[in-house]
Computed example of a mutant assay.
Amino acid sequence: MLRVGLLGAGRIGQVHAVNIAGHDRSALVAVADVNTEASGKLAAQFGAEVRTSEEILADSGIDAVLVATSTDTHSDLIEAATAAGKAVLCEKPVDLSLARAKACKVKADASSVPVMIGFNRRFDPNFATLRAALAAGEIGRAELLSVTSFDPSPPPLSYIRVSGGLFRDMMIHDFDMAGFIMGDAPVRVHAAGSSIVDPAIGAAGDVDTAVVTLTYGDGRLAVIRNSRRAVYGYDQRLELLGSGGLLSAANMLENTVSKATAQGVVSAKPLFFFLERYMPAYAAEWSAFVAAVLDGGEVPVTLDDGIRALALAEAATQSARTGRPVVPEI
């Protein structure tokens, strides 16, 4: 049984608490958050103790921690946890700074404990099936990947100001997905972004609409499209063109009923919120982490993966600012 301390009791911490407590091979032992009301409520819900992060890290009876705190604390907590001999599952991104993330990896690598980065979309059954079909040679060689990721509405401006920007906060999932599908890192990143959803986002120094093209060393291409506004729901799609065919993963809809009449064909909208869309993926992600720690296998999403995605995010941020292609620092 994996005894787990949860660092962070916010929205995503609450999702993870459900999976930790509900898994037959893990137990939620303690919860920490700077908001003691939030940690107290979550701990009471699952029969865990309220502690500080320092107390959790110092407890030799806790085997692993899940880091769901603000991004600017991730590297510090990864370093402290691995130094204490605890396995770590840390929400994306590793850090807001690529240099800091690389320094964190050096310290974490000095320990022998597993560190996994929380890119949950790899565990979505649709995306995982698409990747497996590619690996099985069902469409030949991958040539052109298209990733669509549109949020139904922007987050609050208070979040935008501390998020690190759309490329580090939102599109970083898609950078990781491109690596997951294409198998390696691009040699060039070209990005364009604007603030057309909400001018206040632009005034805060961010963009809300962006397109990025990734060019790989062998000529393959990936195109990523992000928007903070899709009024019809949470739009998450993949399309992969190969030398022998096409693979695509469509949206998850509110239901599978469609109506066809002389006026046209109508179906349900996509699921509206990311938690509805990706709850199965979060559960599968946690199962993979537990298995890696208890059974001694490799974690499926490494610190290197997290650093690669962050490097692409930094390159895209620079490219969008200058209008020029950028070689990522991977």
Rank of each mutant, 00 (worst) to 15 (best):
N19M: 11
A315P: 12
K269T: 10
P300A: 09
S53K: 10
A64T: 00
V266T: 15
A268D: 09
M279C: 04
G306D: 06
L89S: 04
A38V: 01
V231S: 13
L96F: 12
R25L: 13
F289Q: 08
A250W: 06
L241T: 10
W286M: 00
V212K: 04
V326T: 04
S39V: 06
S267V: 02
D124T: 13
S227D: 12
E49Y: 05
A311K: 01
C90L: 03
A222L: 10
S97C: 02
G40P: 06
T256P: 03
L96V: 09
V301H: 03
A260W: 08
V147Y: 11
A260S: 15
P186G: 05
E91G: 14
R121W: 09
L28R: 01
A260E: 13
S163E: 02
A178F: 03
G242K: 02
A185K: 08
L221W: 05
A9I: 02
S319I: 14
H23W: 09
L144Y: 11
R25K: 13
A315M: 11
K102C: 09
T52K: 06
E276R: 09
L7C: 07
S97V: 00
N35Q: 11
V189S: 04
A48P: 03
G245V: 00
M1N: 08
G8M: 03
M177D: 02
A203T: 13
G13R: 12
R51I: 04
L246G: 00
R308S: 05
G13C: 12
G306I: 10
E49W: 06
N251R: 12
G233H: 11
T209W: 14
E138Y: 00
S248N: 05
E138G: 00
